[in-house]
Each structure stands twice: as C-alpha cells, then as structure tokens.
Design a protein around this nucleic acid. Structure first.
Lengths: 196, 196, 196, 196
DNA sequence: AATGAATGAGTTTTCATTCAT
DNA sequence: GATGAATGAAAACTCATTCAT
C-alpha cells in the first residue's frame, strides 16, 4: 500500500537496518539484500533510494557520527567549566547508546571502510578533528596549549582503544569501567599541572 | 618440476603474501587468487596447503601474533627491572616492524575477523591475556596488584588506540610520538605511586 | 495540476525524448526512465500513455518514418519530370533533417528492433516498399520496367549504405558528398540508357 | 573431465557461440549466460577467459572481421588484373559464408556496438580503411586516383546497404542478386572511363 | 491526469572451492 | 607436488512494470 512521503521513512529504516546488520555481522560484509529485508523492503528499493551499497554504508556512517556528535553536544551543554567539558566528552563516549555492541562494531567497520573509501576517510577525519578540537578547547585553560594537544591525543587514543578492546573481549571492562580508567588518566594529567 | 620439502616454503610465502595483501587492501577482502598470485603459486595450491581461505587468514594472524610476541620477548630480555619491562613492552608495540602500515592494517582486519571466527577471537584473547599478564607482571612491584591491573588496561587500550588512529589519520603521531605519549601516561602513574 | 488535453502533448514529448535518447545512446538500450525524465514526466506516465517500452519505440519509429515520408513527398511535389522525381528522393534522403546523427542512429536502432519485433519489421517493410515504388515509378519511364527495378534496388542500397557508414565513420562523406555519389551512380545508369 | 590446453578451444567455442547468439537475437542483447550455455560451459568460465562481456563481444567482432579479411585475401590471391581484384572483393562480400544471416546480424550489431565502444569503433574503422584501400588500389589503374576514391566509396556503401537490406527484408535480392547489382554499377563506372 | 512507491525478474560479475591430470 | 579447468553460489545492480493515491 504505497503512500506519499515514504522516502525519509525508508531511508531511515534502511540506515538503521544497515547499522543493525553491521552490529550483528561485526563487519562490512553485509549484503544489500539482508539490509533491505531487515528494513522490510526489497533490495531494489534500497538501490532506488541510495544508489549503491557504498552510499548506504556512508549514510549509516554519517548517522553514527551524527548521533555521537549529538550525545557529545548534549553533554557539553550541561558542563559549566573546562574540566567538566572534558569529562563530558569522555562520558559521552561511554554512554550506553554509544558504547553498545552495535555502535562499536560499526565504528570498527567504518575504520576499515575508511581504508578504501576516500569519502569514509574524510568523514572519519572530520569527526576526529572535531573531537580533538573539543578536547583541546577544554584542556587548554587547564594545562596550556602544548600539553593540551598531547593529552587530547592520549585521551582520544585511550577511548578508541577501549572501544575496540570491548568490541572483542569479554574480559574488558564495561562502559563504566572504561570511563573510570580514562578519567583516572585525566586526573593524573590535571594533578601534575597543579603540582607544577 | 615439483620439489621435495617445498611445503614450509610455500606456506610461508603464502602467509607473507596474505599479510601483504591485507596491508594493501586495508581489510580482509583479499582473494585467495591474489594471495596465491603474489606468492607465485596457483590458488589451488593455497587450498591444498591450508584447506580454506579462513585457515590462511588464521595462519597469517598467528604469524603476526608470533612476530609481535618475539619482539616483546626480545625487549623483555634486555630489561633489568620491572619498570624497564613495562617500557620494553611499550617500545616493542611501536617498533618500526610492528607499527607499520601492513601490520596495523592486519591488526584491524583481525579484530574484524574475530567478530565472526571463534578461532580468531581465541587467538586475539590469548594474545591480549599474555600482554596484560606481562604488563601486570611489570607493574605489580611498582604500584601494587589492583593499580597494576587498572594501569595495564589503560596502557593496552592507549596502545591499541594509537594503532587504529595511525592506521587512518595522517595527523596522528608517528610511532615515536605515540610511544612518548604512552610513556608519559606511564610516568604519571608511577609518579603518583611515589608521591603516595 | 493535471490538465485536460495533455495527452497528445505528452505523447509527442515522449516520442521526441525517445528519439533524442536513441540518438545519444546510439542504440535501443535506452531506458524508459531516461526517456520519461527527458520528457519531463514520470516513467509511470510513459507507460500510462504507451503501455510498454516497445510501444514507445514503435511510436518513435513511426514518427521517424512519417517525417521521412513527408520530406520525400515535399520534394516530389516540386518535381516536374520522372528524373527530377528520382533526384528528389535522393535529395530528401540526404537532407539535413534526415541525415542527422539522431536520425541515422534511430534508423540503425530500428533495423535492429525489426529483427525481433514483427511490427517493427512490418513498418520497415512498408517504408521500403513505398520508397522502392517511388523510385521505380520515376525510373520506369526512363529505363524501362526491369532496369528500373534493378536500379531502384541499387540506389536504395547505396543510400542505406551511406547512412550506416556516416553513422560511424568520420572519414565518410557528409550529406552533400553522399548525395553527389548517389547522383553520379544515377547519371551512369541514365547515360547508358541513352546510349543504348 | 578437465584437460590441459582447453583455453584456445573454449575461447573459440565461446566466440562462435556468441556469434550464433547474436545471429539468433539479431542484436547485442545476448547474455553471457546464453553464450556460455551454447558453448557448453558455465558463465563463470566465460568471464574467466574473457574478463567481461564486452571483451567477448569484441573478440567475436575481431573473429568476424578476420574471417572476412581472409575471404577477401583468398579472392585477391586468384585475381590477375586490377579489375579482377575489385570484382574479387565484391564477390567475397557476398560469398555464402559472409552473406549469411548470422554474419549480417553480427555486422549490424557491431555497427551498434561501435557507437558506444571506442575499441569496437576502432576495429570497424580499421576494417573500413583496409577495404577502401583495397578497392582504391584495384580501381586506380582503371579510372585514375580521384575517380577511384569516389567509386570505392560508392561500391562499399552499396555493399553495406545490401547487407542491412538483406538482414531485414525477404524481398531483397539474395547474395548473387546483390553481387550482380554491385557489379553492374562497377560495369557502368568502368565503361564510362573507356568511353572518355 | 499524474506520480511516488515498490518490486520481480534478470544480468553481469566475483570468488572460494573442487577435481582430474 | 602442483596446476589448469571448471563451477555453484551469491553479490550488486538495473529496469520495465504495476499500483494506490
């Protein structure tokens, strides 16, 4: 029963289905057929709306990135001082929605995609730069420009590291544990500055 | 003219070819045909020796893991005290052979493989446990059991994080920079202990 | 806002779009989607009016044939004697509208279509018979019945030959050159008759 | 029962099957699946040997062109004087092998292919130039350089014209009739020269 | 009158894998 | 020990066509 105005709904359903499939498969080796079936439509419709499998993947990636960005911004909005801003970013990274199996698998998959797709690489780069900029912005008042850059790198790397470790290992700490570990690192960095 | 004793040579050549292909492709989407061609043999021979593509992949993974293990052990052998042991592991992680495009792409690929292949997951778990154990072993005399575990997790995550960041971003620090960042984190952890 | 009396306009727009697409593609491998898009309507409307892709193609073919017929009749109307009639047909064949890339590609495409579509074959046959009849009608007073038939065949073939040669080869003569060549052949035929 | 040295046999079988399919379909809209089936192999093998459908088509085209070239050369070898050479080319064009339904349909299809495939266009151009050169070479001693060029164009066009006419119309003369018509045109051309 | 929505059927292409030699 | 031959299965993608609105 075709109706008007289905396009945005279908696009959304397909993107969600794509992310869910990636979450299940743990990789990009998902077929348009499966994505479409999960979204309750034919593979042809998926092509109709997105043009190609790559475009679906890219759209899913943008979705994930956007969601993450929203979560971060939401956290930042409630932060009153620089340190709180940095903690908010860490917290956002390990929030249940972001630190879910589905999301983590998607991140991993997108890292792989970025190795061959220039557009995916670009998206990832933009995201990384924004995250870095946010971290540096919060850290600069606390530790100065040069340390801020270094610490931002360390924080971001540790966060990414926890992501992939948790993607794979049951022994890895959960979101809360990972967040605590990153915050502990941050504590140390800030404490040193005070001591100095 | 078939020769006797070719098996180990062929296996090795295929494994190296597999890793090289993964390094080039940046993912597991390498074909047996290409691997075999790079090794200078027919695809049929690759199957003859390994039985299946997955087995080739797994063998390549074991190879990477073994190489890394060797590098670590080599570093540990020259370390005289606990702290040196921990630093040696960090150094090994960012040694040029390990921190190469090929190796990093392979790690990423294997993380993905582990999501579907139980055997790959097992291998990765064993490696992670051994690394963790090594780190904890070095840290325990310095910071005590519970902190050792926590810091080991943080170090390992940060290392992994630098791996995937470097896999993709030109802005990321090189091996030396990454090593310095991890060591800086370690400095802070140890300094806290001394202060306490 | 749908309007009354749009049908003939739409049909015409679709037929023209179809011919333009064939001209661009150089073959029948044009899609209903592209034809409709060029005509500024939806593919569904194309079906609504024509029933099927084949019918669109056939309609386009009839259009081309009709146009050619008109051009010929226009030329014939101004011809005062048998020889002029024959020359008029030749001239019409190489008139700029007929001897255009678009038209030539369409002819070629329709020849191909006729191989599978009985209706297309019938249309082409009717056109050929009419052309032949026109030529014979003009030639008969000049060279007699039997030679007229033979020469008509030769003329028509040479014209068709120039069409496909020009469709493809830059080295081929332009319309004027082709017309001169055919007329030269005609000169010879008529001269022989005089000599006899 | 796989054997060594099958490649040339398979390639040949596939090319023949391709031509046969084109002959039946009357167009390029033949599928790799049908070609392969007719050749008694799987579609995958067709790709294995040719790489793509286009390559199969091109190989078939080269085959047709080569066969025609051979037929012409065979005729030329037995021709003792210029005029005989020209007549031999005409005769070759309408020899039963060349003037068969299959061959004619293939020519038509290749003309269409040439509209989109640069390589096909190149092949066709090379063939046309060689044919033209052969005709001019034979005509020059008889009618001089400039007339030779003109007549060659006329002959070649008429030949091509008979091809497509015969491809489609049952009323068209058979090979012998077509040959006679072309030879008649040639007679006229040569007679004029003598008279002059 | 006109279209957005939707799909089934079909096409090319890829690739791991098998097997006879 | 090694390979050329061969394929089945599955994938992405295309497109004419239908239908409810």
């Amino acid at each position: 029963m075709p109706k008007v105005g289905m396009e945005p709904l279908r696009r959304d359903a397909l993107i969600r289905a794509c992310i869910a499939e990636i979450g299940e498969a743990g990789s990009l080796s998902v077929t348009v057929g499966r994505i479409a079936a999960r979204a309750g439509v034919s593979p042809a419709l998926a092509h109709h709306y997105f043009g190609s499998k790559d475009r679906i993947l890219l759209a899913a990636m943008r979705h994930i990135l956007r969601e993450f960005g929203l979560t971060v911004r939401l956290g930042l909005a409630r932060a009153n001082d620089p340190e709180a801003r940095v903690r908010a970013i860490v917290r956002a990274s390990f929030s249940p929605e972001q630190f879910s199996r589905e999301c983590i698998a998607s991140w991993l998959a997108f890292y792989v995609l970025a190795q061959t797709s220039p557009e995916a690489a670009r998206l990832l780069r933009v995201y990384a730069e924004r995250l870095d900029s946010n971290l540096v912005h919060g850290l600069r008042p606390l530790v100065g420009e040069s340390d801020a850059r270094r610490i931002a790198q360390g924080l971001a790397s540790m966060i990414d590291g926890f992501y992939i470790r948790c993607a794979l290992q049951d022994r890895a700490p959960d979101g809360a544990g990972a967040e605590a570990a990153v915050n502990d690192y941050l504590d140390l960095c800030l404490a040193r500055e005070h001591a100095a």
